Simulated assay, not measured.
Amino acid sequence: MQASDKGSAKSLADMNGQDLRIGIVQARFNNAITSRLAEACIAELLQMGVSEQHIRHVTVPGALEIPIALNAMADSEDYDALIALGCIIRGETYHFELVANESGAAVTRVSLDNQVPIANAILTVENEDQAWARAEEKGRDAARVAVEMANLMEELQ
């Protein structure tokens, strides 16, 4: 790709959400933050043309439970893209690394194994202030990634 082509590639992204079916899995741990992620995500999906009836939003206890719910949704073949929403805040023990690494790897595995795009918006932050600073934009970004990748996968098949 030539330097002049780089800018045009982004403009080719298909951000039309009409007729797309999107599944969202939200962790309830750090619920205030993950609910803000979900609100921003759903609002962005609706603005992009995804019908409210084509959005399935479920909750699970925490980030480690997100992948199994994503896998069940992917197995159903009812969704064009999926979204993972969670918030892992570093504590004083190794548990943060375990949850962050394992949930992230499992989300990726579900996506690759099922050939379904998953927008991973599981925040991994040092403190609650960082989470709040990122929640709204990361929620919107997850919606955009899901729509763009669903449309790209359709084009590639």
Rank of each mutant, 00 (worst) to 15 (best):
I83A: 02
A13Q: 00
Q130W: 01
A40D: 06
A146I: 02
E52W: 04
Q47L: 07
F29P: 08
H57N: 14
L45A: 08
N16H: 02
A135L: 04
A100T: 07
I89A: 08
I88H: 07
L123F: 07
L112S: 12
A106W: 11
S11N: 11
R140M: 08
L64V: 02
W132F: 13
D19N: 05
A43M: 09
G104T: 11
I88F: 02
S11C: 01
E97H: 03
S4I: 15
A9C: 03
E102S: 08
N101E: 05
G17H: 01
T34Y: 07
I68M: 09
A146V: 06
F96I: 06
V147C: 09
V116I: 15
E102N: 11
R144N: 00
Q47V: 03
S51K: 14
L156Q: 09
P67T: 05
N16I: 01
M15W: 07
L45C: 12
M15F: 12
H57Y: 13
A43G: 10
R90C: 05
W132N: 15
A63P: 03
A32F: 10
V147H: 05
E44C: 07
A13G: 00
A74Q: 08
A105Q: 15
G17E: 06
L112Y: 11
E154F: 07
I55F: 11
E155T: 10
G62S: 14
Q157V: 11
M1R: 03
A27C: 09
N31Q: 12
G104V: 07
Y94D: 13
N114K: 15
G62N: 12
M15V: 15
A43V: 01
G91W: 12
E77L: 12
S51I: 00
L98H: 07
E97F: 04
V99M: 01
L20T: 01
C87N: 04
T108G: 13
E102R: 08
R134W: 00
A150I: 08
E65G: 01
N16C: 05
V147A: 11
A142G: 15
G62K: 07
V107P: 03
I42M: 10
G139Y: 02
L46E: 12
A135C: 02
D19G: 01
D80W: 07
L152R: 09
A3E: 14
N71E: 15
V50A: 08
N120Y: 01
E52V: 02
S111A: 15
A131V: 02
Q130H: 10
I66V: 15
E97R: 00
